[in-house]
Design a protein around this nucleic acid. Structure first.
Lengths: 103, 103
DNA sequence: CAAGTAGTTGCCACTTTGGCAAGTGCTTTC
DNA sequence: GAAAGCACTTGCCAAAGTGGCAACTACTTG
């Protein structure tokens, strides 16, 4: 039989970072948000957000849409199905480790 | 009025590490555990655990007791009041970010 | 053309973390 | 009583993650 591993091994590396955790949390709740909205909500610099968004996008966790609202460009962020699944699994694992009965 | 910061700023740096998170979670549930018990539960090497325990102890999060059970030394780990408070606050912040209504 | 908006990227320095091997303190075995 | 064992501890180091800052892209407005 396979040894049962401690749940920490199942934590999502991407979501262990507080910034990415917060970005994904915000998107999970809001559905879609603009780059600026996320930047202001999470309180991070453009540079840092841009890098973390790129990481999440590369992992297929979120879709980045470029469009124009009037004359100004708008980058919209939305969780993918995969991202949402990863988020939920991560939360469930955290709860499992913490001993949360609702895990 | 003071600007309300995003809750991620209140996350406990010590508890952002999965190993320390797991150690503290286990101790919160069990009360006191031996070094070996934690090592086996969390599935980590002696070296890594020793270092993380030292970090948690330095932060006043846990008390390390050295004693002998028969002839073999036993290092027991217990959360301090401060450690328990930090743990609870960290969990509450995670829930707050995640939008958990029970936060 | 200069300047501004909305991001993006490169470069770099700092920090964290783990593995591995050697070391510590105490005890049992040959 | 020297060697070996047990339960950790520590030093050294290499790899990886992050953020700051400044320069850069792309497009628009004055």
């Amino acid at each position: 039989m396979t040894a049962v591993q401690h749940p920490r091994h199942r934590l999502d590396e991407l979501l262990q970072n507080p910034v990415r955790f917060s970005i994904v949390a915000a998107l999970d709740r809001a559905g879609t948000l603009g780059f600026g909205e996320v930047r202001d909500a999470v309180e991070i610099t453009d540079s840092a957000l841009s890098k973390q968004v790129a990481a999440l996008e590369a992992a297929g966790y979120l879709a980045v849409g470029k469009s124009f609202v009037g004359k100004t460009p708008r980058t919209s962020l939305t969780l993918t199905r995969h991202g949402r699944a990863g988020w939920r699994a991560h939360l469930a694992t955290l709860r499992e480790i913490a001993g949360d009965p609702s895990a």
